[in-house]
Design a protein around this nucleic acid. Structure first.
Lengths: 167, 167
DNA sequence: GCCGGCACTGTTACAGTGTATCAGCCGCCC
DNA sequence: GGGCGGCTGATACACTGTAACAGTGCCGGC
């Protein structure tokens, strides 16, 4: 689910690894004069360490491992911060979160591919879809401010490993 | 939020009124040999009576008006049935449901426009977006089975009524 | 130094969303 | 009649998310 060789009409996007995500976040926060606190780093680290989307309570549970316990509400606040600055993305159809593999800051123009077999998530962008979408919406007299596109199905790796044959 | 004159590149879609939705549902269930029970009709009626998306508990509360009380779990079961057959749609970004204004049965290929000002929802289809999406996803090696596209913003009516000026 | 403001975090409580499970009902077929 | 399957009612519970308040640490003004 990580490194597609294929290049869609938009930019492809493999998941960045755990380290680079944290480094990138740290740099971005310095640039924007934001506080990249311990909790926020831990939450981002937890999310980045998983290819699958994580629920807020999963994150809280994982961070509560060693003695000190982290309440879900704290996780939510950290997630609010991280999503606001485009470091993680919310997957609406799953009520869960994934770390952003891009180097951008914008949180729009993204498209999520969710595999039903392995639960993995890939993100990609497609300017072609964006422009079509913007065009169609504008003709309906609508002024968009944000949008979500989430596709469920089977990723290439799972299909090769052999999905349900008679299906 | 109901009757756009504009025609996007796809098919436009005004909301059908309360009556026709129920009639259509009844016919569809007869055709497919499905049971359009009292509860299911009531739930669909409640959803169809609102331009805004309704939460399951809102529906339960509304149906519980006159003496007899309807539990949320029953509403969920009715909603499962209705969504499964394309009579209502789930709005993932709101955890809520709207009645389908189409005459189709498929629940894919749809696109939802959600107005932040009035809370109204419009649905439309766009073959152009569909084909772009299918193409992009296929090139990523992904086999889609379902997809959601939800756009938030301001609908034409609200913008004309005067949105926030300095914004 | 002290004080006040500010952002962040901890904690508790609670509202909202969704599912599991068991039991009763009703129509249908044998 | 008896069994079977689909629908509903009811209770309990898990998961998701927010409100409200208190404590802490940092930083700037006095």
């Amino acid at each position: 689910m990580h490194d597609h060789a294929a290049e869609p009409s938009g930019a492809p996007c493999g998941h960045a690894d755990h380290e680079s995500v944290l480094d990138r976040a740290e740099r971005l926060c310095r640039e924007r004069d934001l506080q990249f606190t311990r909790l926020r780093r831990d939450v981002l680290g937890a999310v980045a360490g998983q290819a699958k989307p994580m629920g807020a309570y999963d994150i809280a549970e994982r961070l509560s491992g060693s003695g000190k316990r982290v309440a879900a509400v704290s996780v939510y606040r950290a997630l609010d911060f991280l999503t606001e600055h485009g470091l993680v993305h919310r997957i609406a159809s799953r009520n869960a979160f994934v770390s952003c593999g891009h180097d951008h800051g914008e949180r729009d123009g993204l498209l999520f591919l969710i595999c039903r077999s392995c639960g993995g998530i890939d993100e990609m962008t497609s300017p072609a879809i964006e422009s079509q979408l913007h065009h169609a919406v504008a003709e309906a007299g609508f002024t968009p401010t944000s949008r979500i596109i989430e596709v469920e199905g089977e990723c290439g790796a799972c299909r090769e490993r052999g999905g349900p044959p008679g299906h």
